[in-house]
């Protein structure tokens, strides 16, 4: 089996088998906030893959699992309590549309936040602020916000105006998330919203940071960069092949991949040490 296929199938099967560990709705769960984050990431990636037409047993099982969360949680109440939750609400709205569960109507709580400009007061990292603008536009709430969109994009690009040797881990994820948002997760050409010189530098950064991640065997960010290569339509067969070969060689027998070279301190368990890289490689392979 080709490394790409093996990595993809193994990752999706592991995610489906471990879907219960994403469940964030138990009030007494000491890991609830971590699970909520993981659940949000699963929702976003699933939505992306469904929008690009991906299907399969594992995706079906995961879609049903995330869909069941509609009844498990008062999403709107959380968004009213905390404006920052608007991001999760927008991601969920996009998932529901991609899964055929809803039409394109924006969630009312999100529309209310936009109308009252509460989201403009959020203190977010520049790439997160750009992601939010992108999500608002994707939810049909971008009208009259084009100037903000362009300004957020400029701010997000500005933090990457340094050599890759100075990139922190945060910067590398800022790069990948910026590309995801620019390309609407692979369904829009970046040229539609960004100027050529900025895109030329992003393309160079993705190509070089991808090789650096390969060299440093940083599987997690490598998976995101492989997706960026595809979204930016880079001609990088060598990098992609080498990346999948490394992922296949690093994949556990259960299909999962490690997120961290060294597990972080604290004992959150194997699931939290592996779900992110596994999710990102599933995404990259799909």
């Amino acid at each position: 089996m080709e490394p790409r296929t093996r990595v993809g199938e193994g990752c999706w099967n592991w995610l489906a088998s471990n879907r219960a560990a994403f469940e964030p709705f138990r009030e007494d769960d000491p890991l609830r906030s971590k699970r909520l984050l993981a659940y949000g990431e699963l929702t976003g990636i699933l939505g992306n893959c469904l929008r690009r037409g991906a299907r399969g047993d594992a995706l079906g099982a995961l879609t049903a699992f995330v869909r069941a969360g509609d009844a498990g949680y008062d999403w709107e109440a959380q968004a009213i309590r905390s404006p920052a939750f608007a991001v999760a609400l927008a991601v969920r709205a996009r998932f529901r549309i991609a899964a055929g569960l809803a039409d394109a109507m924006p969630p009312p709580a999100l529309a209310r936040h936009v109308a009252l400009r509460t989201l403009d007061a959020l203190e977010l990292a520049p790439y997160r602020a750009f992601e939010l603008e992108h999500l608002l536009a994707a939810c049909g709430l971008g009208s009259g916000r084009r100037t903000r969109f362009d300004r957020r994009l400029r701010d997000a690009l500005a933090i990457l105006a340094k050599p890759p040797s100075s990139f922190t881990n945060h910067d590398r994820y800022a790069l990948t998330h910026l590309v995801f948002a620019l390309c609407d997760d692979g369904t829009r050409r970046a040229e539609a919203v960004a100027a050529r010189p900025a895109l030329a530098r992003l393309r160079w950064l993705v190509a070089v940071c991808g090789r650096m991640a390969l060299l440093e065997r940083d599987l997690d960010v490598l998976a995101e960069l492989v997706s960026c290569v595809r979204y930016l339509e880079l001609d990088e067969p060598w990098l992609v092949e080498a990346a999948f070969a490394l992922a296949a060689a690093s994949q556990d027998a259960d299909g999962s991949l490690p997120t961290f070279a060294e597990p972080p301190p604290g004992d959150a368990g194997r699931f939290f040490e592996r779900y992110h890289a596994t999710l990102m490689w599933a995404h990259a392979a799909t």
């Binding site: 050599p163 160079w204 190509a207 070089v208 991808g210 090789r211 060299l215």
Partner: peptide
């Protein structure tokens, strides 16, 4: 051209990784 660019990117990756 493509092979030369590929080599350039590999050298850049190695250099910027070392420069950390």
């Amino acid at each position: 051209l493509a092979a030369r660019r590929e080599l350039g990117l590999a050298l850049a990756a190695r250099a910027f990784s070392a420069a950390r």
